[in-house]
């Protein structure tokens, strides 16, 4: 049975009674449908892309709240979200235009692919995920909600409703970088999101996340902290030294796999390259 919910209450009710498969844009679920179909035999479906509560973007004093059914295309087109360029850049690289018109932020998270691009950007921005069911609502850090490839803490009656970005993330210098292999649609071999708060020519806060280089997005707050206090316009070696050190820390901590797309050693080396590039780009080239 296919349910198309118009509001949250309706969606949660169906979730509670039918334990359906949640459908956002379907760009993960329906890939190669005729061959996948047998695996879903007898399941119910809940289409959430019209649930009004899930489609809003709000700028609040606490930060930014983005509905789970907001699509990648909406993310990069919404001028308010220019305040979080890393997320917009990630949204604009997901698939191509057609995919972006359907792919939702909630789907990118719930699908829990290690290569998910928007997830990597959200992880650097310390996103929290609001999860609802008829039993209640909970907030979880994105990096805790995703527990492994294709694995999350979501219960069968739960729905991702909103994604919360903290106020400090707004207006930070940010960049999202990804390594892929062609100009057509492709999947990240490695991605990195870097966000820095710079005040009075000094880095006051730094937050980095690496995607596709392990089962979950990689965060190393201790490593990021090396950036705090770094002076812009200071000796180039200082900036380079810090960037190198942090990049190496991420490369060492990464747990990449070898698959048909790339080998683990290449991915690990690329973690270092992308993190270093991200940091240097923000320190040396950023134009606000």
């Amino acid at each position: 049975m296919w349910y198309s919910a118009k509001d949250l209450a309706e969606a949660l009710e169906v979730l509670s009674s039918e334990r359906p498969v949640v459908v956002g844009g379907g760009t993960d679920l329906f890939v190669h449908w005729p061959r996948r179909k047998p695996a879903f035999d007898g399941r119910h479906w809940l289409d959430v892309h019209r649930v009004s509560e899930l489609r809003l973007v709000n700028m609040t004093a606490e930060g930014i709240v983005i509905g789970a059914a907001v699509t990648a295309a909406q993310l990069w087109q919404d001028a308010r979200l220019n305040a979080v360029p890393a997320l917009q850049q990630a949204a604009r690289v997901v698939g191509g235009w057609q995919i972006q018109n359907r792919a939702t932020l909630g789907g990118n998270i719930a699908n829990a692919s290690p290569a998910a691009d928007m997830v990597a950007a959200l992880a650097a921005l310390d996103a929290r995920v609001e999860v609802a069911s008829q039993r209640g609502t909970r907030m979880e850090r994105l990096t805790e909600l995703i527990t492994g490839p294709k694995r999350t803490t979501l219960e069968p009656d739960e729905l991702i409703t909103r994604i919360h970005l903290p106020s400090w993330a707004v207006g930070m210098r940010q960049v999202f970088l990804r390594l892929d292999q062609r100009g057509g649609t492709d999947i990240s071999l490695v991605s990195a999101a870097v966000a820095l708060r710079v005040e009075d020519d000094r880095v006051r806060q730094a937050s980095i996340a690496v995607g596709a280089a392990g089962p979950v997005p990689l965060r190393l707050p201790e490593a990021d902290a090396h950036l705090v206090g770094v002076r812009l316009g200071g000796p180039a070696e200082d900036v380079e030294g810090v960037a190198d050190r942090i990049a190496r820390a991420y490369a060492e901590a990464a747990r990449p796999i070898t698959d048909v797309r790339a080998s683990a050693d290449y991915r690990r080396a690329m973690v270092e390259v992308l993190v270093r590039r991200g940091i240097r780009r923000l320190l040396e080239e950023w134009k606000g």
């Binding site: 760009t27 479906w45 359907r102």
Partner: peptide, 8 residues
């Protein structure tokens, strides 16, 4: 524009 192969 969307991909009709991925759209139930």
């Amino acid at each position: 524009p969307v991909l009709s192969c991925l759209l139930p």
